[in-house]
Each structure stands twice: as C-alpha cells, then as structure tokens.
Write a protein that binds this DNA or RNA. Structure first.
Lengths: 148, 148
DNA sequence: GGTAGTGCTTCCCATCATGGGAAGGTCAAG
DNA sequence: CTTGACCTTCCCATGATGGGAAGCACTACC
C-alpha cells in the first residue's frame, strides 16, 4: 500500500504520516525499490489508533506514550487511565476558561443595544476594565481566563 | 514611559508590544533620541484595551476591527455586538468539541479498571474505533470533534 | 570619570500540528 | 511514448508567544 492509500484507509493525511515518521511517532515505513513508502495492515492499524487519539485531543507526546503502552502487552491499565484522566483535566481547564470568556461576553453583549447607536458597553468595558492581574477575585467580575 | 513601564502598566509584555507594532495592530511608538520607544497614557489605554480583548479570546484580526470601531466615535454598536456574538459562537463551538472529547474519554476511563491489570478499554477503543468520517451520526457514539 | 547593572534595540529561533507548493522522479493506462 | 496521477524531498506559512544573543543607552554608585 502506498502512502495515499494508507492515508485514505487511516484518515491521516499523507503529510501528517510523513511528519509522524519524521518526529519518531511511528517507525520509518518500508520502502519500495523506487523509495516509495509502503504500508501493511498493521501500519494502518497504528495510524488509525493515532487518528483516534488525535481526534480526542491528545498531543503527539501523549500519543507517543499511548502507543508505547499499546505495544506493551504487559502494561498496567492504570498507566493508560492516568494519562486519560490528566488529559480530561486539561480539557476541563480549557472548557472552564472558555466558559468564563463566554459568560463575560454574553453579559456584555446583552447590555449592548446592537443597533445603529454608537454607545456600546462592550467597548466601554474593554477600554476601562481593570487588568486580570489587578483583580483579587477573578470570578468576582464575570471571571476571565486564558484558553491556552 | 519606556516599553518596560508600559508593559507593567498595561499587562502586555514588551515582546508583544513590539510584535503588535510590527504587525500594525498599534501605531509605531514615538521614539526618544536614543531610539527608545516611548508611551503616553493614551497608548497605555490602548494597550489595556488590547489586553482585555486578548483575555477574552479575541484574535489579533478581531482586535484590529475592534480597535478601529473603538476609535470611530460614530460606529454602530451593532457592528461591535456582531463581532462579539460571532466570537461567542466560535467559543461555543470549541467548548462543544471539548465537551464531546471529555464525554468520550470519561466514558472510556470509567470502564477502565485503572489498576495493574493490562486489559484497557481505552486502548481497545483507540485501536478499533471506526474513523469519524466513517460514522454517519457523529453523536451516535459519544460524539467526537476537533478543537481547532 | 569609570564601572556595574539594568534596560532598550534588532534579529533569529522555537513552539504545535498542519497544510501549501515547487522541483523532480515513478508508475499505470492509453 | 505521452499523459496524468502519484510519490519523493525541501522550504515556507500559520498564531501568539517566549527565549536568547549581540550591541547600545542609561542610571547609580564609588
């Protein structure tokens, strides 16, 4: 199987397959005489594993660990679960940050007429809100936070 | 005021102030004889505006528009509100994507013993789950989606 | 007047995962 | 044998941010 077919079969783009090989997430593919990368069913299986983990938001580094655990028949399921739980915690943090932003924005937007008039509480807030770092209780003023 | 003081007063790092100037988000700062950037209170005001917008997750492009509207005394509040609502919608999309991931992960993790035993439903799922693109109803199997 | 230390300047590099695109070789169908 | 689809490597771009180096400016102290 060439890289194009492998891509279709796995849902991972050819670009990313080469990239994953380059950074050592996957082993270098076997090559045909013309130096074309060739893939077996087991390789596709690995790529689909990667695709699934990626869809669930795992980083390449986490996927490296997960792949190692996957290939280790004697791994402890606790090790896998720990990674998953840590990732869930990180996603929850991001979600909380986003929720804080939307809460503030919804509040501001609800007070904005949104018509032809120039006065706008949203801009007023941006212009005069205290810095996050100056506010003792972040959640006191419709909390704010960073996504990243 | 030099860039360091401006940074402290605005909550925007010196690095980012120079970057914002470079990409045209803010006007080039006035310079001292020694070519040091100097900032007035109005510049700090603008930087704090930017800081606030950034904290609420707006992109540089969106901030460009917001700054233009801010400086336009005759703007329609509807224009500002539209940007805010669009941004809220985008944040909601990201939140939904994250929620879908955590739902799947929590489901998988809850079925994983998380002890010393090797069998792990999380890895089993990664290894055998169908591709997102192959699933007709995404939400049918604990929906999945991308953050970005 | 030196000197140490801090702050400013510009310039380059790195992140993270992904894609675009060019230049050139390979393969299969007509 | 040509055409088109596919493969290869290599370089560049994204977005917002930080790190760090080399060199110049300013401040404070002796």
């Amino acid at each position: 199987m060439n890289i194009g077919e492998a891509s279709k079969a796995s849902g991972v783009s050819s670009k990313m397959i080469r990239y994953y090989e380059q950074i050592g997430l996957i082993a270098p593919a076997h090559r045909s005489e013309a130096q074309y990368r060739t893939y077996e069913d087991t390789d596709i299986h690995t790529l689909r594993f990667i695709r699934r983990a990626r869809d669930l938001g795992f980083s390449v580094e986490q996927m490296k660990t997960l792949l190692a655990l996957w290939h280790d028949r004697a791994r402890a399921s606790g090790d896998v679960k720990a990674i998953a739980l840590e990732h869930i915690a990180e996603l929850d943090r991001k979600a909380a940050a986003i929720a804080a932003m939307t809460a503030t924005l919804r509040h501001l937007a609800s007070n904005c007429h949104g018509d032809g008039r120039p006065d706008c509480p949203i801009l007023d807030d941006f212009a005069d809100a205290p810095l996050e770092s100056d506010v003792p209780e972040v959640s006191a003023r419709f909390g704010r936070a960073n996504i990243g």
